[in-house]
């Protein structure tokens, strides 16, 4: 989780990722940023993220992203 928060603040500085629950719906993460994030995540966690996973529910909060990573790691 710590690692993820670090990546997040690297990709999009200046956002409080620990509390924000509407990253996508409120427009903090736009599609460009999501793609940058996904590129980092695939690298760091060695997972394959398909377009199928790119829905707001999976990216709205740090916890949601973390849950998605864990699901994909299995």
């Amino acid at each position: 989780m710590e690692e993820l928060l670090e990546i997040l603040s690297e990709v999009k500085p200046g956002v409080d990722f620990e509390t924000e629950k509407e990253l996508v719906d409120s427009g903090i993460l736009d599609s460009m940023t999501i793609i940058q994030l996904v590129a980092r995540l695939t690298d760091e966690y060695d997972i394959e993220i398909t377009p199928m996973e790119l829905v707001p529910e999976n990216f709205n909060s740090a916890e949601a992203i973390y849950a998605m990573i864990q699901r994909l790691e299995d």
């Binding site: 599609s31 793609i35 996904v38 590129a39 695939t42 993220i49 398909t50 377009p51 790119l54």
Partner: peptide
């Protein structure tokens, strides 16, 4: 976004 941007950016050449 869903059917062009994401698949293209996640495709192998783009990765």
């Amino acid at each position: 976004k869903d059917y062009v941007f994401y698949p293209v950016s996640l495709s192998k050449p783009f990765m």
